[in-house]
């Protein structure tokens, strides 16, 4: 009985605390007071955010996050997120800022405050063995297709193109499944697929269809944080102006994508 009372109280208290509206006026103030900015980043998406052998977070996005901390004059703390939990963490206030390979969609804008301008971009494509007879997205009907849990194009692949989706948590599992023939193609970001196709292991594979949904990536803050939004907006503009993102792409072995080049030209012109 004591147990039940205690656990019921704990749960009620939990609901209360989670459900309570953020009392803090401004997250910028809170960050400075704390002396630490908590950033949600990916730890499983090379080269945008991944682990080094000592467990440190490296990649393009952690470097950008460190730059934000430097500009604010505070320390940083990384919280690894995945596609399925990154927006919840931001809403709960567990992270102050999210730079986690998130595609900017109207639906997501309702949940979190996606900062303009966008900082990166990618489209959706397929990784498939050559000669399986897929040349258009419509050819996916009733074929087993591998995907990553939480990706926004999963629904489209399933409903519009009629594929039988098999969703995994990590890319290593998907690539193994693909090589073992458990699915016929892998629907994912084109930047990732392009990187794989340059490796000899994937010589028999191709991107058989046209890239769709070429959409920009947005970093996000919680709704209502207008000061922080304005600050981050300027930071991104500065990244584009100075070509920081292009430099990082080169550092991490990615060919600079047309989007970052275009943004660099646009922002450095005026």
């Amino acid at each position: 009985m004591l147990r039940t009372t205690v656990s019921v109280t704990a749960l009620a208290l939990g609901c209360l605390l989670v459900g309570a509206p953020e009392a803090q006026a401004d997250v910028m103030e809170a960050i400075k007071e704390r002396g630490t900015i908590v950033v949600g980043i990916r730890a499983d998406y090379r080269p945008y955010g991944y682990l080094g052998p000592n467990g440190e977070n490296i990649g393009i996005e952690p470097t950008l996050a460190r730059d934000v901390a430097e500009r604010l004059g505070v320390d940083y703390e990384f919280v690894p997120v995945v596609a399925a939990n990154r927006m919840e963490f931001l809403q709960q206030g567990r992270i102050d800022l999210m730079i986690a390979t998130m595609t900017d969609t109207a639906e997501r804008r309702r949940v979190v405050n996606i900062v303009e301008p966008n900082y990166y971009s990618s489209g959706t494509n397929l990784l498939a063995r050559k000669g399986i007879g897929v040349s258009a997205w419509e050819d996916l009907r009733d074929r087993p297709i591998c995907a990553i849990q939480g990706a926004f194009y999963n629904r489209k692949t399933q409903e519009e193109f009629g594929a039988n989706l098999i969703a995994f948590t990590g890319t290593a599992e998907v690539l193994t499944a693909l090589q073992q023939g458990r699915c016929q193609a892998f629907v994912y970001d084109d930047s990732f697929i392009q990187a794989r196709l340059q490796e000899p292991e994937w010589a028999d594979y191709e991107m058989p269809v046209e890239t769709i949904d070429d959409a920009p990536w947005g970093l996000a803050v919680a709704h209502g944080e207008d000061n922080f939004y304005a600050f981050m907006s300027e930071v991104i503009e500065d990244w584009h102006r100075t070509g920081k993102i292009i430099a990082l792409e080169e550092e991490y072995g990615v060919d600079p994508i047309p989007f970052t080049r275009r943004m660099h030209e646009e922002f450095s012109a005026n």
């Binding site: 682990l51 948590t169 990590g170």
Partner: peptide, 16 residues
């Protein structure tokens, strides 16, 4: 969790 991240960092699935 770490194993999954290691696999993502190595991007080679023969390690799986």
């Amino acid at each position: 969790t770490l194993a999954r991240r290691v696999l993502a960092a190595e991007v080679r699935n023969d390690l799986l």
